[in-house]
Design a protein around this nucleic acid. Structure first.
Lengths: 150, 150
DNA sequence: CCAATTTTGCAAATGAGTTGCAAAAAATGA
DNA sequence: TCATTTTTTGCAACTCATTTGCAAAATTGG
């Protein structure tokens, strides 16, 4: 009941709310992205979306991802190219966060901080730059791996 | 004479100082990267390196860039994929900086700030993460383009 | 229901980056 | 210096993520 405890609107809802056609293929993809527990690339998204609607095609996945990026519903990540040149996707969250990629164990951590928010504000203020998308990725050794050596 | 007025060591010198073989092909590439006035992709690097040593091959460019990344002499950038999926390269500088990419006019600005440095320190402190590489890229409208509208 | 518009699957194409391999170049060591 | 070993290179073929042209299918708006 308390509005602050509400789940954020689902991707599917937000997508439909923009007046775009919610085809079964798009719905399948949106549901997959929304429910993902980890960062998924286009190939994985296709595989999982096909489990919901076997007619989903690779081209549709790419075309829909392009659309979602433009709509700012989804962010595209590189994750420091830890596993090749492909991209990963995640639902855009309320608060931006930094991705920390461990070169040793491959773990991806997310880190948000007030300092990060201030930095973004500073960019707007100092450079007169109007920010649409921010991507900050850090590569190195996570706390577990850093212990062992460098 | 004043040490602070000295140019930073050249890429070629740093490369040789690491005890690696400075072949004519590598020298050509290093000189091109060092003297670049803008961010260049592998294709452009190859073209320009060939002007210095026509024997330089694409494979060598990629192999050398891989080496330079590992040595932390060069950073790889995406520049928000403003022009396709290719990568751009720049000499690693004393101080990290953020790349601001304008989606409208394509201009790339660089921005370094104390806040950015503090944020990196915070990541180390809060997450116990040992940072090797940082990449922060921002997409939006530069000050000129932001005036016109959004 | 009909005409116009959007979205789709398919298959082929694109393009950045990688790889196996044999030849060339550089280092090593008698 | 010369032979041996190691590294680097060019070449051509390849991989693989992503894009595109197009005709068919689905949706929308009269």
């Amino acid at each position: 009941m308390d509005p602050s405890s509400q789940e954020r609107q689902s991707l599917v809802e937000e997508f439909a709310a923009k007046g775009l056609r919610l085809t079964s293929q798009r719905r399948a993809l949106l549901e997959v992205i929304q429910s993902a527990k980890e960062h998924l690339d286009a190939k994985s998204l296709l595989r999982l979306a096909k489990e919901r609607d076997s007619s989903v095609n690779r081209a549709t996945v790419y075309r829909t991802l392009e659309l979602l990026k433009k709509l700012r519903l989804v962010d595209e990540l590189d994750l420091m190219h830890l596993n090749g040149e492909k991209h990963y996707y995640e639902v855009r969250s309320e608060r931006d966060h930094i991705h920390l990629a461990c070169f040793r164990c491959g773990k991806i951590e997310e880190f948000g901080s007030a300092l990060f928010e201030r930095l973004k504000q500073e960019i707007g203020r100092e450079c007169g730059f109007h920010i649409n998308v921010v991507r900050m990725e850090v590569g190195g050794s996570c706390s577990d791996c850093a212990k062992h050596a460098d």
